[in-house]
Design a binder for these strands. Structure first.
Lengths: 227, 227
DNA sequence: GAGTGATGTGAACGTCGTCAACATGACAGC
DNA sequence: GCTGTCATGTTGACGACGTTCACATCACTC
């Protein structure tokens, strides 16, 4: 498709965005390992070293891709949330939104495995948007973690989620959904169920019950007999 | 420590195991990306190409490391399980073992991040031990997934876990624990809680309740109002 | 004691990330 | 309108990695 030289002018004009877009395509097709400076430059028709005018590193490029992907994921989660219409039953609404957000997360992971893996390959932190060792805490606008927190807030406000269990609810919920996505992506659950939808339903139900059910059973947890 | 030539004989004698051990050290120190053929060969004092007599690929070496790590993880889970002594209360015993297995999993992930990541970097499948595209389904002896299944069986037998929710219980439980491990490892939860132990407790409690609590609340799940 | 097959060596190829020296040209100030 | 400047792109190189191929070594069998 690209004939290695359909660029006329010496200067590209928007190379940074072009690299980012191409690198994202690479990530989509082959995951984080496929995000290579040389390949991206080659596809654009530019020399490899040109990339270093816009990214300090290959890791830097990867982080930029990851941030973009997290924004996209957040957008889908928010869209799914907005798709649940408000009714006269605020508690059911909150639960429905929670479910919708979870489904959107898993759906993204499974339909875009390359992008999903890339999102977590570089060390971008969800809660605050800070990178593991990067100076740019701002680029993350639509934070997936924040959306989840919003839904959980709604659940707590309406009363489906007991106040005293609100505290670490996002960690527990996120863990369930993220773990499910990862395990299926890694093929760790191959052969367990023919229909992956069953797995999502079972997991989301477990999370919902685990967060909201009366904690009568929880009494045993702090002191298990055997140590 | 190794002076690049403390081997006297031309033939090493046990190069495959030496490579595997060294590669595992590399994985422990630097994760899957650090598992390099040349570096492993260099440390042993052998030429890079010698490795190809024992592993078809670098991916093959990585898979071998991953399988070993999964065995180690399984051993720890089984040890944790065995550490819970049987009492006169079989239900509490089952729950205590479940908790112990979950703790062992998270503990391994956090104390051995490099190994843990490597375990899931190559596509080794937990349920049956098959690899994504590999012909060797057997090498996995102590299967973590099988251990979890055993504990869940015990929970179902004693009655803490309702029979009708046994079916996908391992997926849901595994997802919760695995997701928590991954998220913390990726730094995704930085700043959420000072004490990570809180997170484990909250997540394990959620899983326990989610699996075992009376499903009165589950009735709403199948048909959310908004679609 | 000769031959053979498993195991290790040496040198090479192509790819990757990265850097330093140089080329180009958009744009400001005269 | 000309010229100098600086961001942006090129060229060519370096070292590391995975991988391969022809060759060397040596344990073991007949």
């Amino acid at each position: 498709m690209v004939t290695t030289s359909d660029r006329v002018s010496y200067h590209h004009g928007d190379l940074r965005n072009a690299l980012l877009a191409t690198a994202t395509e690479l990530a989509q097709a082959g995951g984080p390992a496929a995000v290579q400076l040389r390949e991206a430059a080659r596809r654009i028709g530019v020399s490899p070293s040109a990339a270093y005018r816009h990214f300090v590193d290959q890791a830097d490029l990867l982080t930029a891709v990851a941030t973009g992907v997290l924004n996209e994921l957040a957008a889908r989660m928010r869209a799914a949330m907005a798709g649940v219409h408000t009714t006269a039953f605020p508690r059911l609404d909150a639960l429905a939104r929670f479910r919708a957000v979870g489904l959107a997360y898993v759906d993204f992971a499974w339909t875009q495995p390359g992008l999903f893996r890339t999102a977590y390959a570089s060390g971008v932190s969800l809660p605050d948007g800070t990178e593991t060792a990067g100076p740019d805490p701002s680029a993350l606008i639509g934070n997936p973690y924040g959306i989840l927190a919003d839904v959980l807030d709604e659940m707590a406000d309406t009363g489906v989620l007991p106040r005293d269990r609100r505290r670490h609810a996002e960690v527990a919920a996120w863990s369930g959904v993220h773990g499910l996505s990862m395990l299926v992506l890694d093929g760790a659950l191959r052969g367990v169920a023919d229909d992956p939808q069953e797995l999502v339903d079972a997991t989301l139900e477990m999370i919902g019950i685990g967060l909201c059910a009366p904690t009568a059973l929880g009494a045993h947890a702090p002191a298990p007999p055997g140590g």
